[in-house]
Each structure stands twice: as C-alpha cells, then as structure tokens.
Computed example of a mutant assay.
Amino acid sequence: MREFKAMDFSLTGKVALVTGAGRGIGQGIALSLAQAGADLILADYDLSIAEEAAAGVRALGRHATALKVDVSQADSVAAMIKQVEEAFGRLDIAVNNAGVVSLGRVDELPVSEWDRIMNINVRGVFLCCQAELKLMREHKSGRIINLASIAGKVGFPDLSHYSASKFAVIGFTNAFAKEVAREGITVNALCPGIVGTGMWRGDQGLSARWAQPGESEIKSWERHQSSLLPQGEAQTVEDMGQLAVYLACAPHVTGQAIAVDGGFSL
C-alpha cells in the first residue's frame, strides 16, 4: 500500500507575485501567502496602495516589495518581471489578480468601455502569464493563479462585458495549463463569488444598482447574499487567500476554474 503523505501548506522560501495587490481580494491573497511563509512582490497600478499593502506583509515578518504596473501594457509587465528577477532571481507563485469592473447594459455600453475591460482583464492576464512563464521555466517549476469570477461561469445582467472577460480568462487558463503541463508548472483560475469589495459595495456597486425601490444599499447587499447564495452569506478575501495557498502548494491540480462562492455555481 502506498504511504500516505499529508499535504504541506508551507510556502517558506517561495517568492510570490500578486498583481492588483493594493486592496480587496489581491491584498487578501497576498497576506494569506505571506502567512504561509512566502515573500511577496505586490504590484498595482496605484503604487501608494501597493506600498500600504506591502507594509502589512512586512508586519507578518515576510519580505515585501511594492511595484507599479499597468498589466495592459507589455513594456510595463516586462519591467515588472525584470524587477522580480533582479530582486529574487526566481518566481515560484504568480497570482494575476489585477482587473476592473463596471456596469452597463449591452445597448448602452460604449465600445471604449468594452475595450477597457478586455484590455485589463484578458490582455493583462495573457501578458502576465507570458512574462511569468519565462522566469518559471528557468527553474522548471511554478504555480500560476488567474483571477476569474463566478461571472465567468454564469452571466449577470449589466455585466456582459465583465462576464465575457472572465469567461475568457477561464478558457485561456485551461488551454495554457495544457501547454505547460509537462514542465512542472500549474495554471488554475480562482473564481470568487460575492465578496464585499468595490464591485458589490458602495454607491456605484451592484448592491446599489440592483436595489429595489426604497431599498438601501445595505439591505440590497443582505438580500443578495440571502437570495443568491445557498450558504446565505458572502465570501471574504480570506476565503480567496485560503484557496490561493492551496493552489500554490498542489502539484497535480491544473487547468481548473475553482469557485469559492458558497455553493452558487456548479
């Protein structure tokens, strides 16, 4: 009988890159990876919030470097990876989280907004994966985690462009995983459910937009948790971090799109 070996969830000695790390899910994933022992490169379009997030990682006793990046621009992504290589000489884990969302029905959505969403959410993931692969190949090992969404599994009204971008991330992830499956590199998509970050909360979020007549944003938020999620409560950035740590450790999980959504999607 084959000896059973418990999975080791320690990331001590590993170097992890997280894009869109300045706030929300990206920051939560970065902190979870740091708690597991990884050193972090936190990249964001807004360097100031990346620096703030990096301070949180350092408070956990891990090394953290903050970088500015525009994931939609190849030169910016290449510069980011060059800085990672110069600082650490390797890249073990890459979490391509940077993304944007907006609301708009198909008949009112400007073409420019469709292009903006696609450039950041899809082109950005492609450019990051392409650049990260070169560095990971040198060590014949790596874990790539692309952030998709339950909106990449199920369409939502007012989010056709966002859903299209996340469906694309899932398809790209599955195909890319098969290309590098024999190289010691895994590629997976993490699909957050309903998380109380900017997409859902605030005056411009889905809770406000989908509020019923006379219903406050907070009441709408509570109703959507209750009506959409079998568990009846929203997910957290820590939930996303837990799955990211697992995927960063799992050698034989690849090409998957795993939802953390309280049972909403298949």
Rank of each mutant, 00 (worst) to 15 (best):
M1F: 12
R2I: 12
K5Q: 12
A6D: 11
A6Q: 15
M7W: 06
T12D: 10
T12G: 03
V18H: 14
T19W: 06
G22E: 10
I25R: 09
G26Y: 13
Q35E: 10
A38N: 05
D39Q: 12
L40V: 05
A43R: 01
A43K: 01
D44M: 04
Y45M: 08
L47K: 03
L47E: 05
I49H: 02
A50R: 06
E51Q: 15
E52D: 14
A53Q: 08
G56H: 07
G56T: 03
R58N: 06
R58A: 07
A59P: 00
A59F: 01
G61L: 14
R62E: 09
R62G: 10
T65F: 02
V71H: 00
S72F: 02
Q73V: 08
V77F: 03
V77E: 02
V77D: 02
I81T: 04
V84H: 14
E85Q: 14
F88M: 04
F88T: 09
G89V: 06
G89S: 06
R90A: 05
I93D: 14
I93A: 08
N96K: 10
N97F: 07
V100L: 07
L103M: 09
L103K: 14
R105W: 02
R105G: 14
S112W: 07
E113L: 12
I117T: 15
N121M: 04
G124T: 01
G124E: 01
G124I: 00
V125W: 08
V125Y: 06
L127G: 07
Q130E: 14
Q130R: 13
A131N: 01
A131V: 00
K134W: 08
M136W: 10
E138M: 01
S141L: 02
G142K: 04
N146K: 11
A151Q: 09
K153P: 00
F156M: 03
F156D: 01
D158P: 04
S160G: 14
S163R: 04
S163L: 04
A164R: 07
A164P: 00
A168S: 13
G171D: 09
T173F: 11
N174I: 00
A175P: 00
F176R: 00
E179H: 11
A181D: 06
R182M: 08
I185Y: 11
N188S: 13
A189K: 05
C191M: 05
T197P: 13
G198E: 13
W200N: 12
R201L: 11
G202V: 01
S207I: 00
A208M: 00
A211D: 02
A211N: 02
Q212G: 05
E217T: 01
E217L: 00
I218R: 14
E222C: 03
E222H: 11
H224E: 10
S226K: 02
S226M: 00
L229Y: 10
P230N: 15
G232H: 08
G232L: 05
E233K: 13
E233Q: 12
A234I: 04
A234M: 10
E238A: 15
L243Q: 04
Y246G: 07
L247P: 12
L247W: 10
L247C: 02
P251M: 02
Q256S: 08
G262C: 04
G262V: 02
G262Y: 10
G263R: 13
L266K: 10
